[in-house]
Design a protein around this nucleic acid. Structure first.
Length: 276
DNA sequence: TTCCAGGGATATA
DNA sequence: TATATCCATGGA
């Protein structure tokens, strides 16, 4: 384990980055978070003006957090004086994490038609049962372990009807060369992903955004549908997605994440206000 | 208890 | 091509 510090800036906030719905293997601890990615672990403690990080691999997490990108510049280009500005102000500290493609594929298959708390539980049970034992935690499973587990295993950890998807995709991925996938343009890679049983447009776009660094995508889920319900009434999700990419271009993925986090979190806050 | 969740496959027209 | 229905599960 090594320790290092990260600047806490208006454009990098660990709570917004982890709680914005892009990632599932983290849990709050006193003063911060424990975060797992692939076989790695980091503990991030909030020290006010900086984050104190202890991790098994400093270079891995410095890349994972996407620290080199100029998020302030992206935000200033996107300001519209309206809802998007409001969403950016709310989620200014979000960074899009550079997740592993395989971990993203399996995480977002689990995510479909599912609640985030339950998604986290299913993925955690998947890791505990199939991932390498690292002492305090289990790594994300190897593709071989995922492919060998069988549909019954995925059903047994509560994956529901997605169990068959997970099993089939795991076995299919054994024949995929990721480097060849990485070389494809976004449209071609989306087609490859959607050819997998259980991966549709929305899950493919999440995988492209979070696992393949593609920002010219706009995943449309139930929350994004709510955001644009008035602007685009009764519009199918895939058409809405295409329209929004035309509008926001190479920044689509960032826009989507700010709007998603804003809408979903505000809903929760409104509920708690009613109760209080 | 019912509704809903970071949807997708399938059947039908 | 477009719409309707079904799918497992558990948090709220």
């Amino acid at each position: 384990m090594t320790s290092f510090e990260l600047d806490k800036t208006p454009c990098f906030d660990i709570t917004a980055t982890l709680e914005c719905g892009q990632v599932f293997r983290f849990s709050p601890v006193e003063g911060g978070y424990i975060l797992h990615a692939l076989s790695h672990v980091a503990k991030i403690i909030d020290r006010g003006d900086r984050y104190e990080v202890s991790a098994d691999d400093e270079e891995f997490f410095k890349a994972y957090f996407d620290l080199e990108r100029d998020y302030a510049a992206i935000q200033s280009e996107l300001e519209d004086g309206g809802t998007l500005s409001e969403a950016i102000a709310f989620g200014r500290g979000i960074h899009i994490l550079k997740q592993d493609p395989i971990e993203a594929i399996f995480s977002f298959i689990v995510s479909q038609n599912n609640h985030i708390p339950r998604i986290k539980g299913i993925i955690e049970r998947m890791c505990d049962a199939l991932g390498e034992d690292r002492g305090d935690y289990h790594a994300f499973p190897s593709l071989e372990a995922l492919a060998g587990a069988g549909e019954e295993f995925y059903a047994s950890i509560g994956a529901g009807y997605r169990a068959a998807y997970l099993d089939r995709v795991a076995k299919a991925m054994l024949d995929i060369k990721l480097d060849e996938w990485r070389a494809l343009d976004t449209e071609s890679l989306r087609r490859q992903l959607m050819a997998m049983h259980g991966i549709g447009r929305k899950v493919a776009d999440c995988i492209l955004l979070f696992g393949f660094d593609r920002f010219d995508v706009f995943p449309v889920d139930t929350w994004i549908k709510k955001v644009f319900a008035d602007a685009y009434p009764d519009m199918p999700a895939d058409k809405m997605s295409t329209l929004l990419v035309q509008k926001y271009g190479k920044y689509s993925g960032f826009v989507q994440q700010w709007l998603f986090y804003f809408k979903r979190t505000k809903k929760t806050m409104d509920k708690s206000n009613i109760l209080s």
